[in-house]
């Protein structure tokens, strides 16, 4: 039995990638849950907002690279990120002004707003396709690894490698900072509190003199920042492809529902729950089992589901939560 190598294998193939992915999902789910809490609809355009923000960031990155501007060992895309966020926020605010605001004034049913968000999804999808095309794009530059497999092996003398890519470390750090800033904002600032008040009890918030337009504006800005950052981190870590961003809507929604729609803390927990389940269920555990039970000889890969079915994992979690606890693990709004 070789516990050390087994642990390293789990770290390398499950914990590290799932933590990274979980951080990306958490950011996306935070955006969904904030919009749900304040604007009161499930935003189907979330994935395409992420794609749009990432596309802009990639284009700015290319511009910076052609000017010879880099960010040292860090990816140039991090330098470009603020531009991506700014333009995405501008687009979202424009969309709100032209599209969503009307439905707020007529107090349309949430399901109408979901339908409207499908229209916005089409628009953003089309704009992204025109801007940057439909092909897969890799845009990570800078240092490749924080810890490389060979370094780790020579340090520790273990047979099993542990590699941490710099994009993985950056994802966790950036997501952590952003979440910290968001929670600080919501808990401590007057505007943040007014947003929570608006989400909690719209009528009473209006009665207290809270300006709904301001709350909505700030919400879209935060949603834009979260979506763009989530998209760029995902793209750095894996790659950018408009369609796979669209598909991210499912695990992101699952994360938000699992945590409890409208509950920011729940969105983060949900992101990690979905990510860990997805990675753990689609990982082939044969290697780990080999270290732990060397005498056990099996030709099965010990993989519960093939990676082609990773969305089935989000979906299953979603269904389990809908069946047993529709308000989510952290109390959200289910009805």
């Amino acid at each position: 039995m070789d516990i050390l190598n087994a642990i390293v294998a789990i770290l390398n193939y499950v914990i590290v990638p799932a933590t990274t992915y979980g951080a990306q999902l958490a950011l996306g789910a935070l955006g969904v849950t904030l919009i749900y809490g304040i604007l009161r609809f499930s935003n189907f355009a979330q994935g395409d907002t992420m794609a749009f923000g990432t596309a802009i960031t990639i284009m700015v990155t290319w511009g910076l690279q052609s000017l010879g501007i880099g960010f040292g060992p860090l990816p140039t895309a991090l330098l470009a990120l603020p531009f991506g966020i700014a333009i995405t926020c501008a687009l979202l605010l424009g969309t709100d002004r032209v599209v969503y605001r009307y439905y707020r004034t007529v107090r349309a049913a949430p399901v109408i707003l979901v339908m409207v968000s499908v229209g916005v999804m089409f628009l953003m999808n089309g704009i992204t396709r025109i801007l940057i095309g439909v092909d897969e794009i890799k845009f990570a530059d800078g240092a490749r690894f924080l810890i490389s497999a060979s370094e780790f092996k020579s340090w520790t003398g273990l047979t099993e490698p542990l590699a941490i890519r710099s994009t993985q470390a950056i994802t966790v750090i950036v997501a952590g900072l952003l979440v910290w800033a968001l929670f600080w904002f919501l808990a401590k600032t007057r505007t943040g509190k007014s947003m929570r008040a608006y989400a909690d009890n719209e009528d009473l918030a209006l009665l207290s003199g809270i300006n709904p337009d301001r709350v909505v504006t700030v919400t879209w800005i935060i949603a834009g920042a979260l979506a763009t950052t989530a998209g760029v981190l995902y793209g750095l870590d894996k790659s950018f492809k408009a369609f796979s961003y669209f598909q991210l809507v499912l695990p992101i929604f699952a994360a938000a529902v699992v945590g409890g729609l409208g509950n920011p803390l729940g969105a983060i927990a949900g992101g990690f729950i979905v990510a860990y389940s997805e990675v753990a269920v689609t990982y082939a555990w044969k290697k780990v089992a080999g270290y732990l039970f060397p005498s056990w000889d099996t030709d099965s890969l010990l993989q519960l589901l093939s990676t082609d079915y990773k969305f089935a994992v989000s979906f299953t979690i979603l269904i389990i939560v809908l069946l047993f606890k529709p308000t989510g693990l952290f109390k959200g709004k289910a009805y």
Binding site: R190, K193, R196, A197, D200, N201, D203, L204, S208, G209
Partner: peptide
């Protein structure tokens, strides 16, 4: 003071008072 739904349920008592003073 409305009859029902007259507090912000997920905010602390102190935050409720702060929101009262928002203007």
């Amino acid at each position: 003071v409305p009859q029902v739904n007259n507090v912000f349920p997920t905010m602390t008592v102190e935050e409720n008072l702060e929101m009262g003073a928002y203007i």
